[in-house]
Design a protein around this nucleic acid. Structure first.
Lengths: 354, 354
DNA sequence: CTGAAAGCGCTTACAG
DNA sequence: CTGAAAGCGCTTACAG
């Protein structure tokens, strides 16, 4: 292995000077620089990360911590991982993957090893013991997602309000005012207190109320089969519906399939707009789903950047809320027979949850 | 930070003894052990990985290298990542993610940093410059996938032969002998020389020939839309078909949708068997796909284990070929009107590729 | 602008 | 079974 000592020797300088040049921490004359650079080239020198880490107390490694047990991962998990890894590489950091339990025990264990400069925490819960562990440890960290209690924590998340607003506006612009949300099933223990579902449903209530439309929500779990069943419920409970928003992408596929199966034309009879969806899933529907595209890559990248800003002592990145953006597909069109807004309003929020 | 020195001091021993105990590299008397363990507990000592790495020349970090640019990732990418990360953690290793170009330049760069003890290489190409880089570097590595030239390289891969054999046998047992394979599109530059596609198609030719059945193959790219189109081709070119095997899972969804769209009952009129598929995708079809489940988790885990065996000096893991296992869904049944094998044979391989 | 030297927190011959 | 000491390959005050 070629060491800094070898380079220094060949260039006729001290290893300190080589280090200063490499880190750009002290000025070096052009002549010295040239000699050192030539020596590095000749010898094929590569700076040893481990030694650097030990001496500088900065490893240039960050961790992506994610829930080990829960397997609710949608298709965008690999987007998080890869976009975070690429963002890290760009700043000359490495990303390690840490599967950790939600109780924070493993996380504390891993932090103790002193391997990482900071942590990006995925799938943050509304109340999250891992956040407390991170706080106590003094390790810099950034969240993808949000706890309820968020004072000054560096975080990025989906902008659920803007996403739902844009989605509803899109349907309104097409002339719809008989809307239903096929939401998540918050009674499912796996998703109890699941931030994205809670926040999306809250946003929907707010937005729809602001339009003076009735709040109609059908809970539904995250499967295609459940989506089919939910579509059937919409048809019987709210037959006047002209447009359906679907929270979960797998459910959305089921909604489309179910409606088609019962002889409904999409978007001729009913429009479907899938919230929090990735293109791969949207392309599986027929017709292709109109969707709000989950900003997975952006979140992975921004979460990493937020952490790296802290580590590099740059201006901190303010909390970023990224809306899912509308990607037009072929499941939204104008309603066949528009109804008056007044007529819709009267039907009220009967059967809506809570 | 609590160091080994602190522990040694409190226990009244030298740091060497603490180290021997921790690494179990030399015997320590029960009394000494007890004192040291108590001291570690009292102080909350955690061994520093970085210092250990520098002194021992073993970082206990391995890398998962994957193609940075190509975005052919199916849903099982995160399965690779997470299963590999978990397998690594179990042996007290960390997994870093390395997005690297196919030319091996970035990989060489990263290896030079001396951060990792070994590399698991994903999405191995039939001819792969990254493998040469790894060979030259002297870093231990394991492949997920296979190069053409494989002398003694540690690798794991899907057992395409067994997978296709099982798939065809399953259809035969249901009484089918009018089969078509909707294969990959090897003319697509993204998939040119893509091992899984090449090997699956080869296996299919072999297996079907062994049954004395005609070789009927329709190329198709990896989208639902392409699957629909391919299904239409099957119907016009091989109207006698009673069962279709589909290489790509997204295409399989399109095949099902396309057949249903043209009024065919699945599996009543035609059976569909999806090769190399994950449950999430299978569940999106209606009826749910009968599939050969991609052994993503097994591959990630075995690839990591193969590498760790090398690193730990254990008996090397022999090359592992893991078949995709049959997961019955609802898209395979017996043919409505079985034809004689003789009748099928005569129609031959007209229009089949190459 | 450059260098000598201490030190990061461990492991590992070597000696006893 | 235990210890004193060198060394892993860097960074970083401190001095000049």
């Amino acid at each position: 292995m070629v060491t800094m000592k070898d380079v220094a020797q060949r260039a006729g300088v001290s290893i300190a000077t080589v280090s200063f040049l490499l880190n750009d921490t002290k000025p070096v004359t052009a002549a010295t620089r040239a000699r050192i650079e030539q020596a590095m080239l000749d010898l094929g020198y590569r700076r040893n990360m481990v030694a650097r880490a030990l001496a500088s107390r900065r490893t240039h490694i960050i961790a992506m911590a994610y829930p080990a047990l829960e397997h609710r991962f949608g298709m965008s998990t690999s987007e998080f991982f890869t976009s975070a890894a690429e963002a890290a590489r760009k700043e000359d950091y490495h990303l390690v993957l840490w599967p950790v339990g939600n109780d924070g025990v493993e996380l504390r264990e891993l932090l103790g090893q002193g391997l990482v400069d900071g942590v990006v925490l995925m799938e943050v819960q509304l109340v999250d013991p891992r956040v407390d562990v991170l706080r106590q440890s003094g390790t810099p960290f950034a969240l993808i997602g949000r706890t309820t209690d968020l004072d000054g924590l560096s975080h990025v998340d989906i902008d659920f309000d803007a996403t739902v607003e844009d989605a509803v506006r899109h349907l309104r612009e097409h002339g719809h005012h008989e809307l239903v949300l096929i939401s998540g099933d918050l009674d499912d223990p796996r998703f109890h207190d699941y931030g994205p579902w809670v926040r999306t449903e809250e946003a929907y209530r707010r937005v729809v109320a602001s339009y003076d439309l009735p709040i109609r929500i059908i809970p539904c779990s995250d499967t295609t089969q459940a989506g089919k069943a939910a579509a059937a419920r919409v048809l019987t409970e709210y037959p006047e519906t002209t447009a359906i928003l679907v929270l979960n992408e797998y459910a959305a596929l089921g909604v489309v399939a179910g409606l088609k199966h019962t002889g409904h034309d999409i978007p001729g009879d009913i429009s479907v707009l899938s919230l929090l969806t990735v293109p791969e899933t949207a392309a599986m529907a027929d017709p292709e789903l109109t969707m709000m595209r989950t900003p997975g890559p952006e979140l992975g990248q921004l979460g990493t950047q937020a952490l790296l800003r802290q580590l590099e002592g740059d201006d901190p990145l303010p909390p970023q809320l990224v809306p899912a953006k509308l990607h037009p597909g072929a499941t939204v069109a104008g309603p066949r027979a528009p109804r008056s807004k007044a007529g819709a309003g009267r039907r009220g929020a009967r059967k809506a949850r809570s």
